[in-house]
Simulated assay, not measured.
Amino acid sequence: MAERESENHGQLTLEQNSKPLDANSYATKKTIAQGMLDIALLTANASQLKYVLQIGHQHEFYTLMLWLISVSIVLQVVSCTLALVLMTLNINKPERQHVASVLNHVVVGFVLVAMVADVIKMSFGLDPGPVQKRSADENQ
């Protein structure tokens, strides 16, 4: 973007040929990018859920992991749905700005809680570890 100093008190202005920033377009692109990241995280959670269900009660923290993965998936689906609704709002209209702001805060809150659930989930790990080794030792 070409910028130049105007003669009015040294302020920077954009040249006349530049397009102004469209806040609605920016918000839409940001929401789409966030949605793609949510899809990647949802895919990872689905894979982890499949793994935990396959291992079953051999996993030391089976119930906790199942609960955390389920909460994370539900929150991700809800936040993605709200993000899709948010994407349809035209924030250039003043009457829509408050609704969009509230919805954005709700989505951020859901994403934050899902992230906390994911951090807790990963701190317990998905590797059943010693449980499988103990079972293998008992079979010998």
Rank of each mutant, 00 (worst) to 15 (best):
R134M: 11
G56F: 00
V131M: 13
V107E: 02
E138S: 06
Y26D: 12
V85D: 13
V99F: 10
V131Y: 09
S6W: 02
N90I: 00
F110E: 06
V85Q: 13
A23K: 13
E7I: 10
A117D: 00
S72T: 06
S135Y: 10
L89H: 04
E5K: 14
D137V: 11
P130H: 03
N45G: 10
H59R: 02
A33S: 14
T13S: 08
S47V: 07
H9W: 13
S25D: 05
T13V: 15
A83R: 14
G35I: 00
L82N: 04
C80S: 14
H98Y: 10
S79N: 05
T88A: 14
A83E: 05
M1A: 11
K121A: 10
K93D: 09
T63Y: 10
R4G: 06
E15G: 05
E95Q: 05
E7Q: 07
D127R: 02
F61Y: 14
V102W: 09
L75G: 02
V113Q: 06
E7W: 07
W67N: 15
V131T: 14
L12V: 15
Y62W: 07
M36L: 15
D38G: 15
L103E: 06
F61W: 05
F124M: 05
K121C: 06
Y26K: 12
N90G: 00
S79I: 02
S101Y: 06
N104W: 13
G56Y: 01
A2K: 08
D22H: 00
I39K: 12
Q97S: 04
L126E: 07
P20W: 00
L126W: 08
S123Y: 03
H9L: 15
E138W: 09
V116F: 08
F110V: 03
N17Q: 10
F110M: 14
L53S: 11
V77K: 08
S18Q: 13
P130S: 05
C80L: 15
V71P: 03
H9P: 08
L41C: 07
C80H: 10
E7Y: 09
L53P: 05
V102M: 11
A46D: 11
V111R: 15
A23V: 13
Y62P: 01
F124N: 02
N90C: 00
L126V: 07
D127C: 05
A100V: 03
L64T: 11
N8E: 15
P130W: 02
N104C: 11
P128N: 03
Q76N: 14
G109H: 00
E15M: 03
Q11K: 14
L86Q: 12
L21K: 01
I69E: 00
V71W: 10
N139D: 08
F124I: 01
L12Q: 07
I91G: 03
H98C: 08
T81F: 14
G56W: 00
P128V: 01
L68E: 01
V71C: 12
L66M: 12
E3R: 13
L41G: 09
F124T: 02
L86V: 04
M36T: 13
Q132R: 12
V52N: 00
A114N: 01
I39N: 09
L89K: 06
R134F: 07
W67M: 13
I120V: 10
L112P: 02
S18N: 07
S70P: 06
E15L: 05
F110P: 01
H59G: 04
T31S: 08
A46W: 12
